[in-house]
């Protein structure tokens, strides 16, 4: 099947931003599974309620790499109050669009960020903000239904 990736998607795939790990991360989220063939792991360093640093690793297709890369760009340096409102739509828009069959990758990117936030809030014993829940339960239909 031919893949119509925008130039921005190709750019984020070829030159992904913020690849790596944060050894003393404040929050780590991993979503996806081998069934769908996409796995994303996000590391967050949070200081004074701001995302000071973010790194990611992704196993997946071009769209998976590009959406996770773009997601890190969208949240880096931002206050948590903004980050918890990240949507997959924002990621897709920032990338200049995605083929319909690849939109679910952007959902996974959003989930990865939220999973890392979930980890951060639970570790600190803080109440979960609205929209932050336990991460990917392996139900592929959830992401694919978007």
């Amino acid at each position: 099947m031919a893949m119509n990736y925008s130039d921005l998607v190709i750019d984020h795939f070829t030159n992904p931003r913020n690849v790596g790990e944060i050894p003393d991360a404040d929050g780590i989220g991993e979503v996806g599974n081998m069934k769908c063939g996409d796995i994303m792991r996000m590391y967050l360093k949070i200081k004074d309620d701001v995302v000071e640093d973010v790194k990611f690793k992704t196993f997946g297709c071009g769209a998976a790499v590009a959406t996770s890369s773009m997601a890190t760009e969208l949240i880096k340096g931002k206050p948590l109050s903004e980050v918890i409102k990240l949507t997959n739509a924002a990621v897709v828009e920032a990338l200049g669009g995605l083929p319909a069959v690849k939109v679910h990758c952007s959902v996974l990117a959003e989930e990865a960020v939220k999973a890392a936030l979930y980890d951060y809030y639970t570790r600190k014993g803080l109440p979960l903000p609205e929209g932050i829940e336990a991460p990917c339960n392996g139900d592929c239909a959830h992401c694919c239904s978007h």
């Binding site: 893949m3 070829t14 196993f59 297709c61």
Partner: peptide, 14 residues
């Protein structure tokens, strides 16, 4: 092991 096919093809295509 450890990587995915489509991204492999995209990089090879480049």
């Amino acid at each position: 092991k450890g990587i995915e096919g489509e991204s492999l093809l995209l990089m090879l295509n480049q």
